[in-house]
């Protein structure tokens, strides 16, 4: 008995560094940040103002614009990245594909690459005059595109780069989901003479619901979080705030307008939003599952 209690004590000691780190650096900041968001002022010269920052935020068109931009970006890139990722995984899993490891290694490369650095390279490629993308368009006899000079073009560029970053990762997640579907299901369907699209619709997709939801939650986080490095480096949020995503607005509020309390208030709202959206996705998954059984 005594020995077991000593062992438990050791267990708590082993947990201590991890728990301490999480408590201080993951959970405490939200308390500190929330408390800070109820103030106004610079540095340590703060006045308590209650929820004034939140009221101001919800009345600010710039905040709503950033929310709209973030959601548009997230929804559009997610759809393309998930569809292409699924198609690539399906091709890899179902056809008798040669060079499988080579294809999957190449497609996963952007997941490993330093985002800030790859985004710089893309910025160079998007250059209207000497960029390789417009160079290719001209060589094909087409018109140049003002990639980063119009709000629509800039949003399109952001989406292209984000799809480039996430496609291979989604493909690998789908591939491991596809491997878990027993071959016999497909064989049974083939005996019944079911076509390829029906097989995808009635066997593959329903069984992939957990994978799709997992990717959905990751894409949501990616859209809110990863959009920062893209927007900050590629477009600076412009033109005309057309790509000023929420995380960039938060960053600029803290480090260009030096309004840290407001940046904290926006962070709290963003976190609440992310939490709610991923919760809803999970609820949807449970519903969808019940539908199958």
């Amino acid at each position: 008995m005594n020995q077991r209690r000593r062992r438990y004590l050791t267990g708590y000691l082993f947990l201590a560094p991890a728990l301490l780190s999480l408590a201080v650096f993951t959970f405490a900041p939200f308390v500190v940040g929330f408390w800070n968001s109820l103030h106004a002022g610079f540095g340590s010269d703060l006045d308590f103002v209650g929820f004034e920052n939140y009221v101001y935020m919800f009345e600010s068109p710039r905040f709503w614009n950033s929310l709209r931009v973030t959601l548009l970006f997230t929804a559009t890139y997610s759809i393309f990245s998930i569809m292409l990722g699924f198609l690539a995984a399906y091709a890899l899993d179902h056809g008798k594909i040669r060079f499988k490891p080579i294809f999957s290694s190449i497609l996963i490369l952007p997941y490993v690459v330093t985002p800030a650095i790859a985004t710089l390279v893309w910025q160079y490629m998007f250059n209207a005059d000497f960029g390789i993308l417009n160079g290719a368009l001209v060589a094909l006899g087409l018109d140049k595109v003002a990639w980063l000079q119009t709000p629509t073009g800039a949003m399109l560029s952001l989406i292209i780069v984000q799809v480039w970053f996430t496609l291979g990762y989604n493909m690998l997640l789908f591939a491991s989901g596809l491997r878990s579907i027993p071959r016999t299901y497909y064989e049974a369907a083939e005996i019944d003479g079911v076509g390829i699209w029906s097989k995808i619709r009635h066997i593959t997709l329903p069984l992939l619901v957990p994978t799709i939801v997992f990717i959905g939650v990751l894409s949501l986080m990616g859209g809110f979080v990863h959009s920062f490095v893209l927007a900050q480096i590629l477009t600076g949020g412009g033109p005309f705030r057309g790509t000023e995503v929420l995380m960039l607005l938060i960053y600029e509020t803290a480090f260009e307008s030096f309004d840290v309390p407001m940046a904290n208030a926006m962070t709290i709202v963003m976190f609440a939003l992310l939490f709610t959206l991923s919760y809803l996705l999970n609820v949807w998954q449970e519903r969808a599952y019940k539908g199958i059984e």
């Binding site: 405490a28 800070n36 979080v225 990863h226 803290a254 904290n264 926006m266 962070t267």
Partner: peptide, 12 residues
């Protein structure tokens, strides 16, 4: 995600 807590963590 770490990025979400950037500003609160920075404040601290």
């Amino acid at each position: 995600p770490p990025a979400v807590r950037t500003i609160p963590l920075y404040t601290m």
